[in-house]
Nucleic acid binder design. Structure first.
Lengths: 143, 143
DNA sequence: GATAGTTGATATTTATAAATATCATGTTTG
DNA sequence: CAAACATGATATTTATAAATATCAACTATC
């Protein structure tokens, strides 16, 4: 939402510096599907303030609550994206995000469905669920 | 449901033997709120076949999928017990299981609400959710 | 009433997730 | 066209969750 917050201005070294962590750690979080940094045409990553905030939250969850990365992925897989995006029954039937329960929806390729039209990096399912503490509240709002 | 499966016949040493794990591990799972073994008047634990199956599943989750115990607890906290048991709005407002998101509902004391009348050990919320892989299916059925 | 098995608690070991270091190769920028 | 920084990949280290061992006190069973 906030243009400034979502402006991808930090290089990976700047982001690592600001967060006090190493560069490979940032790449690992991305590989695990916890963050989707902006990528330039040349494939270089650029991080926004929103990304940094998200990563801070991820780290609090891993190091504070002791939920493992695998646990966080499973928790985020429960976000009812099909409700949020209003998927049809037919689309759900063939959607990995709807069917599986081990990874967040934005880690799938989304071919042949409603989400193939849009970019996960700006999708509300991704942006609003930076914090897996919010999963239950989100679920309640649809139950 | 099955009388045989839920018959608490195994001592803790027999259960540990059958599962190929140590006694302190069984006590740990209980302390973490993942299992509720039957307790005799003398406070001794007795395990049923259903308990053993549940523990096998817990171990597969911890050692197979790499979700930590803390992660499993968080996942199980998302089970919509208030829907399953049909809690009133007033009851939900003061229920820790409804409000919090870090432990399964059956780990709370349930004073002053609908659940204070019943025993978690036989409650369908506990018995049907031995496997946190079932959480998403359960959620879908209420969404 | 003696033996075997239980209790909870604390201390220790083991297994492994999380984080980092290092690499050869590629890209950006002054 | 160098110097600085990026890339992905693999190897290594570190931190800690998970499991176990051990304890003194208590309970069951024969």
């Amino acid at each position: 939402m906030n243009r400034d917050n979502n402006n991808p201005v930090y290089t990976i070294s700047a982001a690592a510096e600001l967060l006090g962590i190493s560069i490979p750690t940032l790449r690992m979080y991305e590989k695990e599907g916890l963050i989707i940094p902006f990528k330039k045409e040349s494939n270089q990553r650029r991080y926004s303030q929103a990304d940094l905030d998200r990563i801070k939250c991820i780290r609090e969850t891993i190091n504070g609550t002791k939920i493992s990365i695998e646990g966080i992925k499973h928790l985020l897989s429960l976000v009812p994206c099909w409700k949020i995006k209003n998927c049809s029954t037919d689309e759900r039937a063939v959607c990995e995000a709807f069917i599986s329960h081990d990874k967040p929806c934005w880690t799938y390729s989304h071919k042949n469905n409603l989400c193939s039209e849009i970019s996960c990096i700006t999708c509300e399912v991704y942006t609003k669920l930076s914090d897996c503490k919010k999963v239950k509240e989100t679920l309640k709002s649809y139950l």
